[in-house]
Design a protein around this nucleic acid. Structure first.
Length: 519
RNA sequence: GGCGCUAUCGUCUAGGGGUCAGGACGGAUGGUUCUCAGCCAUCAAACCGGGGUUCGAAUCCCCGUAGCGCUACCA
């Protein structure tokens, strides 16, 4: 094989204009060049071993945006070759999270398509055929080493400061050796022979490198139980499904030359690669299920009341930026503006504060009706009897709450008192505002509010201001005193809104209750 | 241990030979207001280090350093 062609994308230069590694920003947006109507095909290939991870969601988004931007195809493939860890439940959760985010796929998942099946455990015959060819052509060989032997080899290699763990010893097994080992009941794995020539990895975000094959070890491509492994299935499916661009996390960078070697040995097309930087926690480590658990589950953010628009916008800006001014991007803008050439190389820390800011923004963009709709499940889940409430009142409550929602679940502590009287008064608030004159204020205000006619915004407001003026009481004192009596807390929406929403009877009842408490 | 990747305010980032190194989140202060939130204004805050190249380097080159990733019969 010509060493110079090793690892080169097999499609012609012409067609490769899309996603060409152009590091100079402010140039032609990638893909907008002359022809390049090469049908872009990208995929997201999660392993169904738990919830959808934030990092995977971003990978999905980048793939999806790239596909949508170029009118390409976005494929969802399920990489479940690790049978022990894969579950159907996880698969469903991943579909669910993806749908919630609005990342629809054109092929794969439950949808099917021309390259079905899209679940790797159902594609074993395809892999077997390829492995057979590899074995026959001498590109792969059986390895009879046991786990213990491998551990020992590894330990030795490390002690000797070798740059690869496995030394390829089973490459030289004779057929007699093999029979002998097999007779002892050993089930072999299959390993791919790494080539002697450098492997060229072309990466759209990281650039092109030539990898020294001396650092690569003969990878296991079929386990001893007959199950093919990731590096094999991934590259075969990418070729079979005619994937043009593999956009995935940088943790896969070291797998890339191995996969290219497999593809080359099989004579398969090699897609272009784009390794996107990792999403990190605030200590700079990769976000992982292992270390961060639920914190990295997309479903958790959904449950807390983050909007998909906010999640998408937030995650899009992790490792990607458009210019020096824009932070808020609608999904449409993301599709229009997304460009692999503007993806950075270094990892990005997941900053929940910024997500919160975005979420507040997107909640604020919802009109009252939509905001009420979206908040409803949270009320229901918290056990509020919203069904009994007129829609109009619910919307008024949402209006009163206004911008005070960071997450939808904040609606609960913010509006509980609209549904039931406070069972207790916040001690800190009481201490600060319910001084010795509180009783007088409450009593007087109660009388005033009992008499005001009609019980509406303007009238209530004027009558309260009239009271504070006549008795020379600071507005803030009167208002806070009353607020605590009605809501149990010292903060919240305009008190006049609260007064009117509660209605005269309820207000008077609560004032009475507070008076009793103070006595 | 090996291999690889990366490096601009606390964080996300713009800039990529000549900029007061810009914006945003977060923070601080002040204003608006019945509180909180919001909004407005102001402020603090960064080019990992060292050498080159150059009239001039955050930007190009080299060498360090640090962090991270991978190092499975996981993906």
């Amino acid at each position: 094989m010509n060493p110079h062609s090793v690892g080169e994308p097999s499609r012609s230069r012409q067609q490769n204009t899309v996603g060409e590694p152009s590091r100079s920003r402010h140039q032609n947006p990638v893909g907008e060049t002359s022809r390049s109507r090469q049908q872009i095909r990208v995929r997201m290939a999660p392993s169904p071993t738990g919830f959808l991870h934030i990092g995977s969601a971003r990978t999905a988004l980048f793939n999806w945006l790239f596909a949508r931007h170029h009118s390409g195809t976005f494929i969802l493939r399920i990489d479940d070759t690790d049978a022990a860890r894969s579950t159907d439940e996880s698969m469903r959760e991943i579909y669910d999270s993806l749908r919630w985010l609005g990342l629809d796929w054109d092929e794969g998942g439950e949808k099917g398509g021309p390259h079905a099946p899209y679940v790797q455990s159902e594609r074993r015959d395809i892999y077997e055929t390829h492995v057979q060819r590899l074995l026959e052509s001498g590109h792969a060989y059986p390895c009879y080493c046991t786990q213990e032997e491998l551990d020992a080899i590894r330990a030795h290699s490390r002690a000797e400061k070798q740059n690869r763990a496995y030394d390829g010893r089973c490459r030289h097994l004779t057929s007699v050796d093999k029979e002998h080992l097999a007779a002892k009941g050993r089930k072999p794995t299959v390993r791919i022979k790494m080539p002697d020539e450098p492997i060229r990895v072309v990466d759209i975000v990281l650039g092109t490198r030539d990898i020294d094959p001396g650092t690569l070890e003969d990878e296991v491509i079929v386990r001893s139980n007959g199950m093919p492994s990731y590096n094999l299935t991934s590259i075969i499916d990418d070729a079979e499904m005619q994937i043009t661009h593999v956009i995935r996390g940088t943790e896969h960078l070291n797998n890339t030359p191995k996969q290219i070697a497999i593809a080359n040995a099989l004579g398969l097309n090699v897609p272009q690669f784009a390794h996107i930087p990792l999403v990190l926690d605030n200590t700079g480590r990769k976000l992982s299920k292992r270390h961060h658990g639920e914190l990295v589950a997309v479903s958790r953010y959904r449950e807390e009341g983050y909007l998909p628009e906010a999640m998408l916008n937030f995650v899009a800006r992790l490792g990607w930026s458009f210019d020096d001014k824009q932070e808020i991007f609608s999904v449409e803008e993301l599709i229009e503006k997304f460009d692999l050439a503007r993806v950075g190389k270094s990892g990005s820390v997941f900053d929940i504060k910024k997500l919160d800011w975005l979420n507040t923004h997107y909640i604020g963009e919802l009109d009252i009706s939509a905001r009420t709709d979206v908040v409803m499940p949270f009320w229901e889940k918290a056990g509020f009897d919203v069904a009994a409430e007129p829609r109009e009142r619910l919307e008024s409550i949402v209006t009163a709450v206004g911008e005070r929602l960071t997450k939808l679940q904040d609606i609960i502590p913010q509006t509980g008192y609209f549904f039931t009287a406070p069972s207790e008064y916040e001690p800190k608030a009481v201490k600060k505002w319910w001084k010795k004159d509180a009783l007088d204020i409450l009593t007087a205000l109660g009388a005033v509010l009992a008499a005001v006619e009609p019980f509406e915004l303007e009238t209530v407001e004027s009558v309260i201001w009239q009271y504070t003026e006549e008795h020379n009481i600071k507005r803030v004192v009167a208002m806070q005193t009353l607020r605590i009596a009605l809501t149990g807390t010292s903060f919240g929406p305009s008190l006049f809104d609260i007064l009117v929403l509660l209605g005269r009877d309820e207000v008077l009842t609560r004032i009475q209750k507070a008076i009793q408490f103070l006595q």
